[in-house]
Amino acid sequence: MKGSKRRSALPGFGLSMGFVLMYLSLIVFIPLAAVFFKTFELTWTQFWDAVTNPRVLASYRISFGTALQAGLVNVVFGLLIAWVLVRYRFPGKKLIDSLVDIPFALPTAVAGIALTAIYSKNGWIGSLLEPLAIKVAYTQAGITIALVFIGLPFVVRTVQPVLQDLEQEMEEAAVMLGAYRFRTVVRVVIPQLLPALLTGFALAFARGIGEYGSVVFISGNMPMKTEIAPLLIMTKLEQFDYAGATAIAAVMLVVSFLLLLLINGLQWRMNRKAETR
């Protein structure tokens, strides 16, 4: 390898790296590059018009807005669930722990129809909310709830290991210095969890803005009101407006890349901290 004086004793570097790079290029990089090449075919004005059209802007607002709200809900409840799973004992704890992974393993279309069934007018929860004039299905609230479902495991599973590894000694020190429990949790424990919470939020957010299957049933897909960006891309494709679809996709890809860099940076920092303990 460049600059390395010592050759590794183990075989297979060339073969494995070769296969990895070739496969990634064929399946991931070249197809993704096609998006940017297609975008470059448009003039700057065309591109700008395509991505700042009111319907498109509305779809960004809906996608990003609902993902943000869902992410925040998941941070609060995800932290709570991780706390309860790590620190307390109660019957059924293992079952709850397994249930947290369901949204991750369940196909998105199934989640979509199940949530719609529950929150529609005649559904289990929808019928309870109907007399209160609260509509969930076919509104942005429905989208947010679907994204809460999808994003839950990301926050819980990122916080759990960090919470697990926290030293009890720090809390004992706080108690000895006179802090009562609430203050200890807020000033000593939670700050240590912030990187993990942020990472979990970023993961849930990244997943949320791109989510299609679980949202498309409950949202009703009304343009300007509940049409998410991925659906708009799909609609434009069906109308053979490849350029328009690609323009929107390019914007979303840039956001996804940035989020990915942020997440990996945060995870790297978290791992560094864990090692130096």
């Binding site: 197809p31 998006v35 791109g210 679809a245 990915l260």
Partner: peptide, 18 residues
């Protein structure tokens, strides 16, 4: 990790483009 961060619809779109 890229495919993990990309929306599934975009994953389909790229193959349509090709």
């Amino acid at each position: 990790d890229l495919p993990f961060a990309v929306s599934p619809v975009i994953a389909g779109l790229v193959y349509m483009l090709l």
